[in-house]
Design a binder for these strands. Sequence first.
DNA 1: GACAAAAGATACTAATATGGTATCATTAAC
DNA 2: GTTAATGATACCATATTAGTATCTTTTGTC
Lengths: 132, 132
Amino acid sequence: MKLITRNTDYALRAVCYIAQQKKIISVDELVAVLGVPRPFMRKILQKLSQEGITESYKGQGGGFKLKLATKKIYLTAIMSIFQGPLSLNGCFLKKDICPNRRKCVLRKKLLFIEKQALNQLKQINIEALAKG
Amino acid sequence: MKLITRNTDYALRAVCYIAQQKKIISVDELVAVLGVPRPFMRKILQKLSQEGITESYKGQGGGFKLKLATKKIYLTAIMSIFQGPLSLNGCFLKKDICPNRRKCVLRKKLLFIEKQALNQLKQINIEALAKG
DNA sequence: GACAAAAGATACTAATATGGTATCATTAAC
DNA sequence: GTTAATGATACCATATTAGTATCTTTTGTC
């Protein structure tokens, strides 16, 4: 059961670092600080820019800064960028075994667990994470 | 975010079916009813027997029946057979970004979410699932 | 006892998701 | 114009999950 993938983790670390530095940060700096493979880090930062989390500056002295206040960048946003929609998978059980999907215990429980987890995750933003 | 894999799902369906029929069930019957590939179903049933969930009978008229009361077979038991330990992954953030792991917001939240999810899952047994 | 119908054991292959690399094009500061 | 940066994109590697194949062992039935 994996809630957070490496992609997301690297992205979080990068975003936290950028948040802390409050200036334009190049991939090279991130690589030096975070120890993530350079091309992979680049890919992640590009994605973050495409998705409007960061803003990029080309050319000498270029790099990335946050596009939004740290308060407004949510963990769930970054998770869904790298991991797709956050819903847990539903009940696989087919009709003949689980004739009434609405009443299916497993399905209901899984949905409940999903809701609980999302409620927690939704509360987390970069402001909180960057503080340490 | 996947809570339950296909393995587990097939296993659950098989166990529920066996529970409902209350007699020895062959893989062929399970395959016919559940539409799961035969060799895969076999592998799953073998595993369930090795792990003490089902009991197997060789030879003509053989097959599988449950070894325990449906009340005593927990979803979490079957999940861990096919998916390994159920704990969610911890916080990836490294020291330099997240200097105090004990205070790390993300880590704490993820652990809490894990606990909540497990609490729910632990309540589910085959008795409840087999009812539909 | 021979045969057939079942599971046991085990090794292999395929598909998918994730993690990671490589390369060329574009932009902007100096 | 050169250099230092990102943009775009295509590719490769690894791990996990899903699924197959095959041979052995057991047991009921004739």
